[in-house]
Amino acid sequence: MRELGIEAFLGAMEDGATAFDVRTLAEFEKGRIPGVLNLPLFEDEERVVVGTLYKEEGRQRAILEGLGYVGPRMRELVERVEAEVGAASGPVLVHCWRGGMRSQSVAWLLELYGFDVCVLKGGYKSYRHWAIAQMEEIPPLLVVGGRTGVGKTEILWALRDMGEEVVDLEGLANHRGSAFGGLLLGEQPTQEHFENMLGMALARARRSGRPVWVEDESRMIGFRHLPNTLIKAIHDSVCVVVDAPLEQRLNRLVDVYGDAANTLLADAFERIKKSLGGLRTAQARGALEGGDVRKAAALALEYYDKAYAKGIARRASDRVIELDVQGAPHEVARGLIELRDAIALTGEAV
């Protein structure tokens, strides 16, 4: 059994080693290292019992109780690992909260069976420190801005397909960023796990040494907030504004949100009622009741276009560039790359 620091542990994962988080399912769902699999040594209730015994009656009493829980399923733990990894050769990576008894116990069992096992020194806690540190060192950014419906997310995906460094903040947050942004997407990750994924994404993007494309975002993406360092970097970076005709923007909004239930769309309009106004909100609800999602989307754009105009006006004018290329996402992405290269040739910092 070997101990690995966090950098070596993550490096082994990138090289293809399978990693297991032996904390409980509740701990795992709250936040985890991206890419690890959950292999809980204890159920949630069992961990509470063992932890209480450790505090009140000591280490040996807690170990005996823990063995009573784990003993009958030791075979199950080994078989689960073998099913994921294959033959008992490894390497297999294991961690718990602090690199203590849970990970050491599972590592002993797997090593006894024949796996080459490595334990994360400091456990998940060490990853949290590492992830937070990544968010303190923001790489150079290029920001894609534009009004609602221009397809900024699809443009970022096209940039990624072309080999550019991209961090899709809305993808990590599982939210499109507006009052309607959570529709049809399911639950957002916890704030802790959002930060874990963001730290990993920033670290990976930073390695290339190239500017990283991100979308222009406010502090909140749904119910998840961006770190202050990233917000400041976004606001201080060059923002390239993309645009699209109104009809194309409406088409995109209908394609994205048209399958959502009218009640959910109506609830979203209620959330912007104060800014949209009572009359416009009532008109939008009426359009939805009549099955005219497009008309409702047009009313929403009245609000979002005004909000965007105010936001872009707060940026330094010399850090805002309007792209004169429109069209399919890959065409706009190509225009962004050409603009980036032109800026680099002038020697202007991005």
Score class of each variant (00 low, 15 high):
V81F: 10
R271T: 09
F115R: 09
V48H: 06
E45F: 03
L141K: 07
K295R: 15
G11W: 07
G277N: 09
I337M: 14
L183M: 04
N251C: 03
N196V: 01
V332Q: 08
G311K: 08
A179F: 04
R249G: 05
Y303W: 04
G51F: 09
G58R: 09
A333G: 08
T281D: 05
Y113S: 06
I33E: 06
A307G: 02
R334P: 00
A87P: 12
W97I: 08
D44A: 10
K125T: 09
G90V: 02
E170R: 13
E137T: 04
R210C: 01
V242Y: 06
K55A: 15
F9S: 10
E56N: 09
I231G: 04
P139M: 04
G35W: 03
A316K: 15
M74A: 14
V49Q: 14
F28P: 01
V48S: 07
E14G: 10
A19D: 02
R252S: 11
R102A: 06
K30H: 13
M101R: 02
V119P: 03
G11A: 11
A266F: 00
T148F: 07
A266E: 15
D236H: 10
L53Q: 09
I138Y: 10
E154F: 00
F42T: 06
I63H: 08
K121Q: 15
L41A: 09
L10K: 12
A244L: 12
A298R: 15
A260R: 07
E65F: 02
E348Q: 15
V92P: 13
A266K: 13
E7C: 00
N38C: 15
N174Q: 13
L169H: 11
I63F: 12
E187P: 14
I155V: 14
A17C: 08
D168T: 05
H95Y: 10
G5D: 15
T229V: 01
G291L: 07
K152W: 02
R334N: 04
V117D: 09
H95P: 01
A316N: 07
M162T: 00
E192W: 06
V325P: 08
V332M: 08
E215N: 03
I321C: 02
L120D: 07
L250K: 04
R147M: 10
Q283G: 00
A328I: 00
D243T: 13
G90A: 15
T52F: 10
V350M: 15
T18S: 12
A287Q: 06
E27R: 05
F9Y: 15
R80D: 04
A88W: 12
G258W: 05
G186L: 10
L253M: 08
E76G: 12
V167C: 04
E247T: 11
A203D: 13
S317E: 14
D305R: 00
I337P: 11
L39M: 11
R207V: 01
E215D: 01
